Amino acid sequence: MVSRVSPRLPSKSNPDDAFAALVALAGRAGVGITRVVHRTDKAIVATGTRAGRPVVAKLLISDDPYWVSRRAHELDVYARFASDPPPVRVPELLWADDRLTVLTNVPGRRLHDERHLTRDISHAKVQLVLDTLEALTQWAPDPALPEPIDYHGRIHGEFAAQLLDDAERATLHTLVDRIGPDRVTAHGDALPANLLIDEDRCALVDWEHSGRYLPGHDLALLYTVGAAASPTLATAITDRVAAGGITTEYTMNLVLLVCREIRIHDSLPLGAAPAHRMSTLRDLHIRLRQQLRPASR
């Protein structure tokens, strides 16, 4: 991997200029861009080739310190992969500067292209995904990955957003203290688009939120965005949680992630998400709040 400083990027408000910058910077890394596969106000992601090898090129176009720090963390994780490989399939870092990241193009198709599942997932695929996420929890690199979530802080935040009341806030604080320092490695952003299925293998991509979380974090996120459309997934996750003895930790993660998902959807423009999705999230939110009192006993 070669590391250099990128020239100043053009305004991200002009997509053509941003794409031209991607092509130019990728060329410096020996990458020929073939097509853009994803574009946001944060980054442009494209496929290409480098020395005849399929690659993915990601260009950070945001100057937001949060996303700059998340990318720095992701690069550190890729370096960890090289020295201490995880027990799951991941991309290999080939090249990086302060804006551009070039990775191997891992074979596979996304579990789903949208943030939320819109159809049921087969039992075989569900088990493959959950086996992969479970295997990741056994990866313990040294030194340990950071803890991205301050659980007490997140509880305060959801209370301030009026998604938890006083009693629920107190219950969650008590549960965090009762659980103690137990944390496991998690991807942190196990959305369907970050899970690539290739026959009997599942790869995980986009590691900017990875770290050590309360057990069940990745399962809780996948449940939040997938359970309503996939009863097969919902049942399998519930069974895994019970078998693993992590019901309290999982519930903690699920409550906070559902609260966050409601806030995300509240901020979307009218019509940007299906009308039924918010009602589904609200129903799940109500059921979880009802579970908090018995969970604290």
Rank of each mutant, 00 (worst) to 15 (best):
A79D: 14
A203F: 04
G52S: 13
T101A: 04
R289Y: 04
V77K: 03
V36T: 12
A26V: 09
T49G: 15
S267A: 15
P148W: 04
H116Q: 08
L270A: 15
S62H: 02
L281T: 02
M252K: 03
G244A: 13
D120E: 13
L268R: 11
P143Q: 09
H187V: 06
A243H: 13
E249Q: 13
S62P: 05
L22T: 04
R70Y: 03
A234I: 05
R99A: 05
T247W: 00
D150Q: 03
P269M: 05
G153I: 12
A72H: 02
A57L: 07
W95P: 09
V55A: 14
R240A: 13
C202F: 05
F19N: 01
V106G: 07
D165H: 08
L254V: 07
E249Y: 00
T171M: 08
A167K: 00
V68M: 12
L22C: 06
A272P: 06
D266H: 14
G271H: 05
A190R: 08
V106E: 11
S230V: 12
I61Y: 01
I262Y: 00
H112F: 15
L233R: 06
A79K: 06
T137I: 06
G271S: 05
L221K: 10
T49R: 15
R201P: 00
P91F: 01
L100M: 12
D166C: 00
A51Y: 04
G188M: 07
L175I: 14
L59C: 07
G216C: 02
P141I: 04
E208A: 08
H116T: 10
D64H: 12
G32K: 13
A186S: 15
A242T: 12
P274L: 11
K58R: 15
D84G: 05
